[in-house]
Design a protein around this nucleic acid. Structure first.
Length: 746
DNA sequence: GGGTGTTATCTTTTT
DNA sequence: GATAACACCC
């Protein structure tokens, strides 16, 4: 760690009592400031347990704790360091009973929420009216602001919210469950409790908040309430990096803080220690287009730097090929470590093509986020067993596993139980249910006998016959699942080791509930991560830095995402995307490569893409691109090496009249040929171009074969691509409408 | 009640 | 392309 601090940093570190607002641009060393400041507070006599540091992600919390442990040793352990949600869970666990939050509450994740809401919608006969996801986002939108969804009077409240939310809340109460927002809201209520509130407000002599621009209204109130007594609140943030508006973040909180704490000392960190001037110039130019911002003057004494490389490939595989090839050469010829390289993208869906090509080039990737370990079905099943052992009254857990693995208890039986119509059960069902109850009782006995969490997990997998069933299946997938369950045992064993005598099943479940899926990623500590290129969404990359950054998928519609979002106007949305671009660009220390694909396959559909409008904002002098005709490889490495500053290239939109927002355009063969002429080297498989739009070629008169109905003749066809429907006359079954992708042409 | 095959839907982004 | 929901058949 750099020990020396610049003047502004020093001022922030040494600030004494009273509110402090640190406006810190990207790469200006805010984490260092926070850590040093906390260390100094302890040196000055503040007890570790009187310090509360709130971060946004578990990763950030872990890192902060680790750095403080280096400086302070054991004392770091007693500090309150965690995410908002983890901190609130801890407070509620300790004090929640004062406001009737049950001591044994558990936390429901998105999946559970969706299931509950889906079921309620079905019960009310509204399943076709609104999707659970939309409804949940409406709940959240109110709750993010501390408003009860049913009393919301500001416009977006509607009959569905009115109908379902009370039932949803009741359901959670019954299950002793809180959702993520409830954690925050209940803690806020706790702070209003006449006895507990004042006590909590004085417990922390110093409250410090990282990424303050991403706090929502409820979190703002939490911070000011928790630090209210001493007014020793330090908030650190950068409104240009506010990228969680969709989650209710209000960057405005930064200004409100100044208003609510007039004596606040404001310090600006503007010297960037991370990136070259070239990278900063590009990033500043992009963010400069935003209107709603506090203008900052980021500067660096790392002058110059290499221009950004821009490459547009034919399709996403070509893009991935370019990236993988470039990384391979950086490692082989320039001594770059895989660990120094990050591939960033807008959505998780982009990762697959990239990973495939990396593999082809012998490069291992660590994908952060995506389909997380704790979201796997088998893992959730076993966790549901644990929850059921803990709380036999949990209907949600019961319904999840009563027939998992299948033991002949079907929907009909479950429905009877729901109706409390036990009398109507068939004798067979009774017997099976009895056995299930015995299974759970047996597991409870194991737990009561003092088994470790890991042992209990093993018992669940064994006694539920999960292992036997998966072993009998013996497919690639079942082996994978078995492996995941083995991994879960390891995770539990780690927890046992760490928590020691304090470890409980409940503690284990809570840790998992609060962990983001990406926190469950494996491979930590085996040394292999040193050899892995990191791949992550831009959101998950916030706060990180890498010597070399590849930013992929710079295409309008993908990045910026132009997807409509309820409750946020288009301009605000675009500004947030632009901030996201700013975050992405400023992750890079030395080298930055921007890529796009002219066509991209999404949802099995090929679309023509246009380069991102953000590219237009990057000054031409900051961009280089491989010479036309040269293989893209040459530009990045090998012979020509990395492009030099002043390379005579600039980003241009394609001059063909591609419609700017051409998201619905289907791909055609001419397009493909012309692209392939451009970049013949990308065709590695030799299987491209075959059967691309096979479906569209099937029209009236075609002879086709269907797996079920046999051979037939097409009499009519409608739609295109994967949605193309055919009306087929089959000699045996008559006319049938069938999707074109389900028939073969012999 | 369960298995199979067909169809609809899906994607931002995270605690 | 993948997966969850659904319809149909045993």
């Amino acid at each position: 760690m750099r020990v020396s601090l610049n003047q502004a940093q020093r001022q922030a570190v040494e600030h004494g009592d009273g509110p402090l607002l640190v406006l810190s641009g990207a790469g200006t060393g805010k984490t260092r400031v926070l850590v040093q400041r906390i260390a100094l507070l302890v040196e000055r006599g503040v007890a570790p347990w009187e310090i509360l540091a709130v971060t946004f992600t578990n990763k950030a919390a872990q890192e902060m704790r680790a750095r403080l442990a280096e400086l302070l040793g054991e004392r770091a352990k007693a500090m309150w360091i965690g995410t908002f949600h983890a901190t609130c869970a801890r407070l509620l666990r300790r004090w929640g009973e004062a406001i009737d939050v049950p001591r044994d509450f558990h936390i429901v994740d998105d999946d559970d929420q969706m299931k509950i809401v889906g079921q309620l919608l079905k019960d009310e006969g509204l399943a076709d009216s609104i999707s659970p996801r939309t409804l949940l986002s409406r709940f959240d939108r109110a709750k993010n602001r501390g408003v009860d969804p049913t009393t919301e009077r500001l416009g977006f409240s509607d009959e569905y919210v009115q109908a379902i939310y009370p039932k949803y809340a009741a359901r959670l109460r019954k299950e002793h469950a809180l959702d993520f927002n409830d954690l925050l809201l209940q803690t806020l209520r706790l702070l209003e409790h006449p006895e507990v509130g004042p006590r909590l407000a004085t417990q922390f002599r110093h409250v410090l908040v990282d990424e303050f621009q991403d706090t929502n209204r409820v979190q703002y109130r939490l911070v000011t309430a928790l630090g209210g007594a001493s007014r020793n609140i330090t908030v650190v943030g950068d409104d240009d990096q506010s990228i969680y508006g969709w989650r209710g973040a209000e960057p405005r909180n930064m200004f409100d803080f100044e208003r609510d704490f007039p004596e606040v000392v404001v310090i600006r960190l503007e010297q960037n220690y991370r990136s070259t001037q070239m990278i900063l110039d590009a990033a500043n130019a992009v963010i400069g287009k935003n209107r709603e911002r506090h203008v900052k003057h980021l500067w660096t004494d790392r002058g110059g730097g290499e221009p950004l490389v821009w490459h547009e490939a034919g399709d996403e595989r070509g893009e991935a090929w370019f990236v993988a090839d470039a990384i391979r050469k950086l490692i082989d010829h320039e001594g770059i470590s895989p660990r120094d390289v990050a591939i960033l993208y807008r959505t998780h869906g982009q990762s697959r093509a990239l990973e495939e090509q990396l593999l082809r080039f012998g490069l291992a990737a660590e994908i952060v986020g995506g389909v997380g370990f704790y979201e796997r079905k088998e893992v959730k099943d076993v966790l549901a067993y644990l929850r059921l052992v803990l709380n036999p009254a949990s209907d949600m857990s019961f319904e999840r596993v009563v027939n998992t693995p299948p033991r002949r208890i079907g929907e009909a039986t479950v429905e009877k139980l729901r109706q409390r119509a036990r009398a109507g059960l068939t004798p067979a069902a009774r017997k099976t249910l009895g056995a299930f109850v015995e299974l759970i009782d047996g597991l409870a006995a194991v737990a009561a006998a003092g088994a470790s969490v890991a042992e209990l997990v093993i018992q669940v997998v064994e006694r539920s016959t999960y292992r036997q069933v998966l072993e009998a299946e013996d497919t690639e997938e079942s082996r994978q699942r078995l492996g995941n369950l083995a991994e879960l045992v390891t995770v539990a064993a780690d927890y046992d080791d760490e928590a020691g005598a304090d470890g409980t099943v409940a503690g284990f479940l809570e840790r998992i509930a609060l962990a983001s899926p990406s926190d469950g990623q494996l491979g930590a500590g085996d040394g292999a991560e040193q050899h892995r290129v990191r791949m992550t969404t831009i959101h998950a990359a916030k706060g990180l830095e890498f010597p070399v950054v590849f930013l992929c998928g710079l295409e309008d519609g993908l990045f910026p995402s132009l997807r409509e979002r309820e409750g946020q106007d288009e301009d605000a949305q675009l500004e947030e995307e632009r901030r996201l671009a700013y975050v992405a660009l400023t992750r890079a220390m030395d080298r930055l490569v921007l890529t796009a694909a002219r066509t991209r396959r999404t949802w099995g559909e090929i679309r023509v893409q246009t380069p991102s409008r953000f590219l237009d904002d990057i000054p031409a002098a900051c961009l280089a691109r491989p010479r036309r005709g040269a293989t893209p490889v040459a530009a990045v490495s090998s012979g020509g090496g990395w492009p030099r500053a002043g390379a005579p290239a600039m980003a241009r939109r394609p001059d063909r009249p591609a419609p700017r927002r051409s998201l619905g355009t289907t791909y055609d063969e001419h397009d493909q040929r012309s692209h392939d002429d451009d970049e013949p080297s990308f065709d590695l498989d030799g299987d491209r171009g075959t059967a691309r739009l096979r479906e569209d070629r099937i029209g009236a008169g075609a002879r086709v074969r269907h797996v079920q109905f046999g051979a037939g003749r097409v009499v009519d066809a409608q739609g295109q691509g994967k949605d193309r429907k055919l009306v087929i006359e089959f000699p045996d079954v008559g006319y049938k409408t069938v999707l074109a992708r389900f028939v073969t042409t012999d």
